[in-house]
Nucleic acid binder design. Structure first.
Lengths: 201, 201
DNA sequence: CCAAAAGTGTTGCGTATACACCCATGG
DNA sequence: CCATGGGTGTATACGCAACACTTTTGG
């Protein structure tokens, strides 16, 4: 009885004001399940091998398990998604990061990808996991742009700031972002870089 | 390379004003994955074989996939949960239905069960899937008791009714529930017995 | 001085919550 | 006539959405 179990990973990052997905050769990175290593660990190791570096504090979530029941070969795919801050992806082949809104509808994993995007949207609306798309310090506008990129809609600046600050997830770092041809922005950090439930929107 | 893939099912039902789980022999019903049958189909067939009847219109959801990475044998469990109306469970061994709040903390699948309960709570708060815990026709009080049993808290009768009716999910059947030593209650049906997103609470 | 982005309050509206009494029936 | 559960309205608090101008910096 031949059953092959794979782990597939959907890697998300936000840069250039767009949500991107890592799709080298139009495929999701994957790995074959073997003995002695859990699904979660395998997912992390698939990701670290394509990233070429250790990944910490990035939010990893199991998305869904799909099956392809053929006559002589049962295939099971356990799919994960992971959020990476843009700073970490310098090492990746840049051309393999595809904007989420321009992933070809023809690739076989398109269904998985759409579902992953949907789940990501939900997740950022009721948890703090966006922290794992951002560097340690960031401005409120940068944070707002991350939300806008994921949710696919504009947010009101004043309402956004009031809401985010009222949640008490952030603390001011004291520093300012200077060097731009504009008024310097105050910088913030997440108090905790651990997942927790929060109603953001 | 020996990998065994199982499907496990958490069966939920609400009766006697309590959420119950089907645990014959303190175990979740399960089945072994083989060729030619998808995970979802296998989950349904496990359920139908313990139920001894065909199950329609019951809400089935994939919960999570767990792995047990031993040295010489990799085990993968794909867990589902299903909602059954109390009327359907007459055929089951009644004593195997355990109240959710009195499942022993010592059984090996306790973690899975707690997680399933948590996911069920979430689900009923933002979808209409409770329909699959109820018979075709029911009174508003019966519906309210279902919610109270799952959420584990009392709800205000007037607010509950206003909210539920405002969602437009129900239509009055015209009939009344008589025979009780009390004022007859109007009976309702769900307009659609299909899952859809609705913010209930 | 001009362009660019940061920063800041108020108002209206709709939804959630809290709360208590009368009604219809069966026994 | 009494016990049981069905059925109903209002007032308040709160959160969300809409909306425009001033400030600080770099060039």
């Amino acid at each position: 009885m031949a059953i092959s179990v794979r782990v597939k990973t959907v890697l998300f990052s936000v840069f250039n004001n767009k949500l991107h997905i890592y799709l080298p050769g139009q495929r999701l990175p994957q790995g074959l399940v073997a003995h002695g290593i859990s699904l979660n660990k395998l997912a992390m190791s698939v990701i670290e091998s394509v990233a070429g570096q250790a990944i910490n504090e990035s939010y990893l979530e199991q998305l869904y398990t799909f099956s392809h029941p053929f006559e002589q070969m049962m295939e099971v795919d356990v799919v994960y998604y992971l959020l990476l801050p843009a700073e970490k992806i310098s090492e990746f082949y840049q051309e393999s990061w595809i904007a989420a809104d321009s992933v070809s509808r023809n690739i076989s994993e398109y269904g998985i990808i759409s579902y992953a995007i949907q789940r990501l949207r939900w997740k950022v609306e009721y948890t703090n996991v966006v922290y794992s798309l951002l560097p340690r310090e960031f401005t409120l506008s940068e944070l707002q742009r991350i939300y806008e990129s994921i949710l696919g809609r504009k947010l009101d600046k004043r309402n956004f700031r009031r809401k985010i600050l009222s949640l008490g997830l952030l603390r001011s770092s004291g520093r300012k972002r200077t060097g731009l041809k504009a008024r310097p922005a105050r910088m913030f950090r997440f108090r905790e870089r651990k997942p927790s439930m929060v109603q953001v929107f």
